[in-house]
Write a protein that binds this DNA or RNA. Structure first.
Lengths: 229, 229
DNA sequence: GGATGTGAAGTAGTTCACAGCC
DNA sequence: GGCTGTGAACTACTTCACATCC
């Protein structure tokens, strides 16, 4: 009780979406042998204001040094703790088409606590083949215990797959199918929809307004809260 | 001047991100032969509140009927106009790995005005092959005129590719590489980062809080504005 | 009756400006 | 001197509640 345990108290949704960016920046500076970084530098690389960076980071506790900025290794560690990277997340991927392959073969997807547990598909030509070191299983087989389910199937099959994953006690779904899915309360669903991202870009191109570069800006998925029932 | 032209005046960023969802819902109801839908139904399917739906739609002008909801075909049309779907957007995709293939082969990516103009890669084994009806070109060839560039290359190559696209007069970039890129002012950049989406989900799983399902909720990329200079 | 569209209120997030500490 | 951390002001978005119209 003497050691003040870090307090990962509620972070706002926009903050949560920005932390991984800061962490990636910190990591990249570590690799380049840099020790320190200040909020202005982070801001420029992340495409936000320096004040926002400081607010976000202040939410994790006191981790900077006044007058000298932040130590990148501390940044990396604290953000990792805040995001829960000290825990392990078993990930199953359903649908091993181009997208599923792209995800599991990417060196940037399954990182920071996330580890691949199993792959599933329904195509007999894909089942039994090895992808990313895992033999693809049939969806008729039982789903292995896991924390996160990634849905990379055609829209028409998304709901069915979601039901299956929920039944297997998986409470976090990342849905790449452009299809809204219903889940029982208590299951976190996060959607990624390429077409929508493209359409947002099209809107801005059409209107001149909006996210113009210059510096950098990133766009991140934000989840809308929803009242129960 | 007599006919009150529709006014696509400034829409908020969250609204822009939700409109494609509403449009998809409208489209799906049209396919099922339904004519009308009300804000409550849209809300449930989209994972937002009915009030939010009405506000968003009211921003496009008066397109509902009091007491009777919205006509789905009108919804579809008006949202399309607001998002600029009446124009054509030539899209070039750079990096024809699993992800690039997944995008161009998806029946849901290049829709609503977006059309594939050309594919590029640097791998001699990929160059010259046909993907989605297009022969993959070498990046050493000139970039064809286009509106949007989609970057599906490894992070280390992303900046170089972005420079190339900007030089080819492309002002909208959709970057799938987990890498911040710098562009001159006037270029809209939109990032899609799978790993970040997964990390956000991990945070919520870890904290119980956040986007719990029940109804549906979607998460969409939002772009942060950035001051000039 | 029923659902839209919208002022008004409320909430969340960002930016300003500066005190505090190195 | 410089940069963090933060109260205070501001802006943006959402939600409430209801007048309005079919």
């Amino acid at each position: 009780m003497a050691t003040p345990r870090l307090r990962p108290r509620k972070l706002s949704e926009p903050t949560i979406a920005r932390l991984p960016v800061y962490q990636r920046i910190a990591e990249s500076w570590m690799q380049r042998g840099q020790n320190r970084i200040d909020s202005r530098q982070i801001a420029e690389l992340a495409g936000v204001t320096a004040t926002t960076v400081r607010r976000d980071l202040a939410g994790l506790g006191t981790l900077g040094t006044r007058g000298a900025g932040y130590e990148v290794s501390v940044l990396n560690d604290r953000i990792g703790e805040a995001l829960g990277h000290d825990r392990k997340y078993d990930v199953v991927v359903v649908g091993i088409g181009n997208l599923g392959r792209a995800l599991v073969n990417s060196s940037n997807f399954l990182i920071r606590g996330a580890q691949l547990a199993a792959l599933y598909d329904v195509d007999p030509e894909i089942i039994g083949t090895e992808v990313a070191g895992h033999v693809v299983r049939s969806l008729t087989e039982p789903i292995v215990p896991a924390t996160v389910g990634v849905i990379c199937v055609p829209p028409a099959a998304a709901q069915e797959v979601a039901d299956l994953l929920v039944k297997a006690n998986i409470h976090g779904l990342l849905n790449f199918a452009p299809q809204v899915i219903t889940t029982p309360l208590g299951t976190a669903v996060h959607y990624v929809d390429f077409s929508i991202e493209l359409q947002i870009l099209m809107y801005h191109l059409n209107n001149g307004t909006g996210p113009l570069g210059g510096g950098l800006l990133h766009s991140l998925g934000l989840a809308n809260p929803l009242r129960g029932s």
